[in-house]
């Protein structure tokens, strides 16, 4: 306990201790951080997750991400969940630096717990979670100390689907189909053809097939991907994340390929 009122900070006006009778040199200086000059900031991602895909469908939002966390080109952790439910009707999918994502999971948990302790019957929906993340990501980039992620936030609020993106720069946008990383180049054309250009919304089965197909294409083409993945859905019934799924892949075409690599005959 500090019993000296002058140390508690000064009132706004000068009415209190108007003539500075309390000796100034007795006021404690603000603490100096000994490490202030030597702080390391994230300059590049280290352990990374690759693409996240998400689409809007009949019942809400469906999101997919594989279970790999890479260390450069090394497939370092093959059992990592990159889809995180937040509250009762939101899912957050993360690509990019996994330690930054763990930090984000932590602050989201703190945020939703605080909201829960108020006990006022209000909790956070997908739009609020996205806005919060956008503020955090933008604030960190503005300190030149970014959280190195591209995140997708999906959910259902009052029966309306919500799907939006936010990344390490604080850039945000929303669309019926979204993807991060390689997915933005490889999966988006497939997703837009099936989702944005379709006359009606996809059924759950169609959506699942579409995302699985895209995950397979990504696994064939993205060297930092894995054939183990999960699919999450958010509907008006709530959030659910699937068990780990395995992609069906075919490699037998490679048998007939001749003429490059070490195999010349």
């Amino acid at each position: 306990m500090d019993h000296f009122p002058t140390n508690w900070g000064r009132p706004r006006n000068e009415l209190y201790d108007q003539y500075n009778t309390f000796p100034l040199h007795h006021r404690p200086a603000n603490a100096q951080n000994a490490f202030a000059d030597g702080v390391q900031r994230t300059q590049q991602p280290i352990v990374t997750g690759t693409s996240v895909l998400a689409i809007q469908y009949q019942d809400g939002i469906m999101m997919a991400a594989d279970n790999l966390a890479s260390y450069g080109s090394l497939a370092r952790f093959k059992d990592i969940q990159r889809l995180q439910p937040v509250g009762t009707r939101t899912i957050v999918g993360a690509s990019g630096d996994m330690s930054d994502f763990q930090y984000i999971q932590h602050i989201l948990d703190e945020l939703t717990t605080e909201e829960f302790t108020y006990g006022d019957g209000h909790d956070l929906g997908p739009a609020e979670v996205h806005e919060y993340l956008a503020r955090v990501m933008y604030a960190r980039r503005s300190k030149i100390n970014p959280l190195w992620n591209a995140l997708l936030v999906g959910g259902v609020e009052n029966g309306k689907p919500f799907l939006a993106y936010v990344d390490l720069l604080g850039t945000t946008y929303s669309a019926r189909s979204l993807a991060t990383g390689y997915g933005a180049h490889i999966a988006i054309p497939l997703l837009r053809t099936a989702v944005d250009n379709a006359s009606q919304l996809l059924t759950e089965e169609e959506a699942r097939t579409l995302l699985t197909d895209c995950m397979r294409v990504l696994f064939y083409r993205d060297a930092r991907s894995l054939d183990k993945y999960q699919i999450a859905t958010v509907t008006s019934a709530g959030v659910s994340v699937s068990d780990q799924l395995k992609l069906d892949t075919k490699w037998d075409f490679a048998e007939g390929i001749r003429g490059y690599g070490s195999q010349t005959q």
Partner: peptide, 30 residues
């Protein structure tokens, strides 16, 4: 890459003022 086909850049401020913002979208929105 086209990120989205609908991200407004023009915003109504008051009943007689409208602001259009272009460049870095995150800065613009903020």
């Amino acid at each position: 890459s086209i990120q989205t086909r609908y991200a407004p850049k023009v915003f109504r401020l008051t009943d007689r003022a409208v602001l259009a913002v272009n460049g870095f979208a995150a800065d613009g929105n903020m």
